[in-house]
Amino acid sequence: MTGTAPSPQRTTPGTGTSALITNSQGEYLLHLRDNIEGICWPGYWAPIGGRPEPGEPLADAIARELKEETGLTIPLTAFTTVHQDNAEHLGKGTIAVYTGHWDGDAHALPLTEGVMLHWFPVSVLPRLRVPPWCREAIRIHQAA
């Protein structure tokens, strides 16, 4: 997997979108996905994200997904693009990753999809089921 940091003005090509949300402690807000057949990465911890509607710009898609799934409306910045290619977990294509910052109680958010939201420090990520594309996005983010 590789990632490149696009300029914020450029529309990042992608088949999916994701929001790496951090807090003032440097933790990442991750979403425990439902463990059901027919979705990408069931039972994994991943950032909030999804796919754009036909004709929907990626920046609008991630803002919509974040609002729909968590109720959050925060500024997001285009950050990088990562590739996922894992047919076993229905994940294939590119993910346009956006970043944002929020200090709040993850468990108080009105989650509409998945099992739960939780803040995690980077040191805990190796012990979690996290998709490889997500690990790559966080690695790039940590290096930036």
Rank of each mutant, 00 (worst) to 15 (best):
M1C: 12
G3F: 15
G3K: 11
G3Y: 15
P6L: 06
S7K: 13
S7I: 11
Q9W: 12
P13G: 03
T15A: 12
T15R: 12
T15D: 15
G16Y: 12
G16D: 14
G16F: 12
T17R: 13
A19W: 04
A19E: 04
L20P: 04
L20Q: 00
T22G: 03
S24C: 00
G26F: 03
G26N: 05
Y28D: 05
Y28M: 04
H31D: 06
L32D: 01
N35E: 13
E37C: 08
G38M: 07
I39L: 07
C40K: 14
W41A: 14
W41C: 10
P42G: 10
G43Y: 10
Y44K: 07
Y44T: 06
A46D: 07
G49S: 04
R51C: 12
P52K: 07
P54R: 07
P54N: 09
G55I: 09
E56W: 11
E56A: 08
L58H: 13
L58G: 09
I62D: 09
R64W: 07
E65S: 08
K67N: 09
E69N: 06
T70M: 00
G71P: 00
T73D: 09
I74Y: 01
P75I: 03
P75H: 06
F79M: 02
T80M: 14
T81D: 11
V82E: 09
H83W: 12
H83N: 13
H83E: 15
D85H: 15
D85K: 15
D85R: 15
D85C: 14
E88M: 13
E88I: 13
H89F: 15
K92T: 14
T94R: 15
T94N: 15
I95E: 14
V97N: 06
Y98K: 05
G100Y: 01
G100M: 00
G100P: 04
G100K: 01
W102D: 02
D103A: 02
D103E: 02
G104Q: 03
G104T: 00
D105Q: 04
A106S: 00
H107S: 00
L109H: 01
L109V: 02
P110C: 01
P110L: 02
P110E: 00
L111P: 06
T112K: 02
T112P: 01
V115Q: 07
L117M: 03
L117K: 00
P121D: 02
S123M: 03
S123D: 06
S123L: 08
S123W: 09
V124W: 02
V124F: 04
R127N: 14
L128M: 08
R129M: 13
V130Y: 08
V130Q: 06
V130T: 07
P132F: 13
W133I: 07
C134T: 15
E136V: 10
A137D: 01
I138K: 06
R139G: 10
I140M: 11
I140S: 10
H141T: 01
Q142Y: 11
A143L: 08
A143R: 14
